[in-house]
Design a protein around this nucleic acid. Structure first.
Lengths: 202, 202
DNA sequence: TCATAAACTGAACCATTATTCATGATTATA
DNA sequence: TATAATCATGAATAATGGTTCAGTTTATGA
């Protein structure tokens, strides 16, 4: 395991400190990115001394990886639990998009942390999207076996759907374009496209 | 203009040097990202001394911005010219995806440079996607007026299509998942989805 | 051919910052 | 209460890397 070198504390106070450092790091990484954030800035924001950082993390890098892994666990769990409540693939798809966008809104640091891995550790970046896709493919294959979705290449479809979800999330998070307040309307539009296709029928 | 502080040279040799620095920077930024790349590394790779860099660029940052702007100009021009050759919106859409993915394959530094702007200058990142979307919206609105595409929210649709294109590009570039050799097959799958929708019809 | 400008050099400067460590405070245990 | 173990400090260290500049080479054109 990558994070085996992190000393996860057991006593009450130490756990608080540990978590405060992570919280502070999330905020700072969001603001300035990995390289734009100093240990001083993190620890200062967490209200501890610089040296305290190294009681828990052997390096700045290990903190970053720990955060990346935690975030990706969380979002996957979040989406999976919400999607599981729905019956049809159509409903699952709608719920998945919604859960993702809401998670992003509540954890705006996500894109920064995950995308930055492209420059920090390309393996982690690939692993994140590939394992996300793998789970997606499973769900789509199942739906295909049930006759719910068309006979498409499920892997390509998984990346298409991930692309849609990610860019809608980005639009809402960074307020790209207009009308980002009404999430239901946005999702309605996306679902209409997935239901009918883009083009008019003759 | 942002890059007005760059001294673009006029004499033959100086232009060569200028371009060699940019080429080297592209390669190094791709390998290690902005922060992971030193001026020393860039100039060494370009075969010039460190000081030479500052004859043309006032700072490392100005080089990055110059590259970002150049890349985004180029890809837009590339896509626009190819899409213009096609008649129907369906053909234009197919051509657009293809042009994008091919551009990405030939300029693999693109994602690194553009996405990294999220940590370097969030305004540039937003500007890039918003202006990309604006052009897309124009095309879609036109197609809608012609009755070629459904009555969808064109802005949301633009981000959906950009998301699809970007993630297919990412899949091919980073070789995520399998079967990334056959680009035509991938594009066929995407287009089928856009034509028919995702779900089977009762 | 020679003078002037343009292009280039790379060692030195200086600011930044990840990490260490000697020391002190706090908490748990016997 | 004594003693060990844990937790915390923050100044010092050491390395890195963007930028400068005084000097050298190359090109130009009269």
């Amino acid at each position: 395991m990558i994070e085996s070198d992190i000393k996860i504390p057991t006593t009450r106070n130490a756990i608080t400190t540990f978590n405060m450092i992570i919280e502070a790091a999330l905020e700072k990484f969001y603001e300035g990115g990995y390289h734009g954030t100093t240990i001083q800035a993190i620890t200062q924001h967490a209200g501890v001394a610089a040296g305290t950082f190294y009681l828990y993390f052997p390096s700045k890098m290990s903190l970053y990886k720990h955060i990346l892994i935690t975030l990706s666990h969380n979002i996957r769990k979040e989406i999976a639990s919400k999607v599981a409540l729905k019956e049809t693939r159509l409903e699952k798809e709608r719920e998945g998009i919604k859960a993702f966008v809401q998670y992003v809104q509540q954890n705006p640091q996500m894109y920064n942390v995950i995308w930055e891995s492209l420059y920090i550790d390309r393996g982690l970046f690939k692993e994140y999207y590939e394992s996300f896709a793998r789970r997606y493919v499973k769900g789509l294959s199942h739906a295909q076996a049930q006759g719910e979705i068309d006979t498409l290449d499920v892997e390509v479809t998984a990346y298409v759907l991930m692309g849609i979800t990610n860019f809608i999330g980005l639009k809402v998070l960074l307020d790209l374009g207009e009308n980002n307040e009404d999430l239901e309307h946005i999702i309605d539009s996306v679902m209409m496209l997935l239901e009918r296709g883009l083009f008019t029928r003759k």
